[in-house]
């Protein structure tokens, strides 16, 4: 059976790269008595699918991966079994059973909530946000192999507001086709006042990841029914 696991990655473990995080979880499962399902062959590996890799230096409070465990497992025990063997900053928040035929974590991702905190000089203001909301379009130029591609980031933002004077909340499109990186959003936003993002150091935190349910609404990845 497949389960979807929600976890955090904050504090010093934010410096761990995605591949190492995958290896970390494989070892973590081996430290428990949870029976896992493995691929066939000489180097069997666990069948895992992460919703969305978190870049080095970014903190996550609502990260997800799917993994296949033996049908005999009681999935409600998995959270506690893993939490006794976690490194500081990695915590299992929830484990849910994936219904038969559910799409895998990575393919289902539609949107993400980010909190972007400027920890030195603060370029954010209600005026800046107003400019963003009133503009017809706010352009970020993607540098692709095929050449520069202007993107209207407003089309990719579901929600944007200040939650503290130096912290911007944004719910953005994270689908594989139209993923909007927080750095791209901030670059476009600051350009409205002629400011350069490189001059303003900030921390990125991903609060939640969403999929679309049967009715086309955004729901957290952990809400797996329908």
């Amino acid at each position: 059976m497949k389960v979807r696991i929600k976890f955090t990655k904050y504090g010093v473990v934010k410096y761990i790269g995605h591949l190492d995080l995958m290896r970390y979880f494989q070892k973590a499962f081996r430290r428990t008595d949870i029976q896992m399902i493995y691929s066939k062959g000489f180097s069997p590996h666990m069948l895992m699918s992460f919703a969305s890799p978190l870049g080095v230096g970014i903190e996550g409070y609502g990260e997800y991966f799917d993994v296949e465990v033996a049908d005999s497992e009681d999935y409600t025990l998995i959270k506690d079994k893993l939490n006794v063997t976690m490194a500081e900053g990695i915590e299992i928040l929830d484990v849910v059973l994936l219904p038969e035929g559910a799409g895998n974590a990575m393919a289902s991702v539609e949107a993400s909530d980010y909190e972007l905190e400027f920890h030195k000089e603060n370029p954010l203001s209600e005026e800046l946000l107003d400019k963003f909301l009133k503009a017809d379009s706010v352009i970020f130029v993607k540098e692709l192999k095929s050449g520069p591609l202007p993107v209207n980031v407003k089309d990719l933002v579901y929600d944007i507001r200040l939650i503290k004077e130096n912290v911007l909340f944004a719910r953005v499109n994270s689908s594989s086709a139209d993923n909007l990186r927080p750095a791209a959003l901030l670059t476009a936003l600051l350009s409205l006042e002629g400011k350069n993002l490189e001059d303003y150091p900030y921390h990125t935190l991903r609060r939640e990841i969403y999929r679309k349910n049967g009715s086309g609404e955004l729901v957290p990845m952990g809400d797996v029914n329908d």
Binding site: V12, Y15, D20, A87
Partner: peptide, 9 residues
Amino acid sequence: PERYIGNEI
């Protein structure tokens, strides 16, 4: 950077 952060299992 993982070389310098400690906190390993």
